Amino acid sequence: MRIGIVNDLPLAIEALRRVLAQAPQHQVAWTAADGVEAVEMALRDRPDIILMDLVMPRMNGVEATRRIMAEAPCAILVVTSDIESNAAQVFAAMGKGALDAVDTPLLHGAPMAGKHPLLTKIEAVGRLIDAGSSAPAPKGIERGATSQLIAIGASAGGPAALAAILKALPAGFPAGIVIVQHVDARFAEGLARWLDDQCALSVRLAQEGDRVRPGEVLVAGTDDHLVFKSPERLGYSREPSDHTYRPSIDVFFRSAGQFWPGALTGLLLTGMGADGARGLKELRDKGHLTIAQDKASSAVYGMPKAALQLDAAREVLPLEQIARRLTDLPGLRLSTKGLSE
Rank of each mutant, 00 (worst) to 15 (best):
I5S: 11
L9N: 13
L11A: 15
E14A: 12
L16A: 09
Q25A: 14
Q25F: 01
H26Q: 03
A33G: 10
D34H: 15
D34N: 15
E37G: 06
E40S: 15
L43P: 01
D45G: 07
D48A: 15
D48Y: 11
P57A: 12
P57Q: 12
M59R: 15
N60H: 08
G61T: 11
A64Y: 08
A70N: 08
A72Y: 14
N86E: 10
A88T: 15
M94S: 05
L99M: 14
V102F: 02
L107Y: 05
A110V: 04
M112K: 04
I122H: 03
V125R: 01
L128N: 01
G132T: 06
S133T: 12
R143Q: 13
T146E: 13
A151T: 09
A154E: 01
A156M: 12
A160Q: 12
A161L: 05
A161T: 03
L162T: 00
A164C: 03
L166I: 05
A168W: 02
A168G: 04
L169P: 01
A171V: 11
G172T: 04
I177Q: 02
R186G: 14
A192L: 07
L195V: 02
D196W: 09
Q198V: 02
C199Q: 00
S202A: 10
R204Y: 00
A206Q: 00
D210P: 09
P214T: 03
T222L: 12
D223Y: 05
F228D: 02
L234G: 02
G235T: 09
Y236K: 05
T244M: 05
Y245I: 07
I249M: 07
F253V: 03
F259E: 11
P261A: 13
A263C: 08
L267Y: 10
L268Q: 05
M272K: 01
M272L: 13
G276Y: 06
G279R: 07
L280S: 04
K281N: 09
R284N: 06
A292M: 09
D294R: 12
D294F: 11
K295S: 08
A296D: 15
S298V: 07
A307G: 05
L308S: 06
L308Q: 11
E315M: 12
V316L: 06
P318M: 08
P318K: 06
Q321A: 09
R333F: 01
S335P: 02
K337C: 06
L339T: 09
L339E: 10
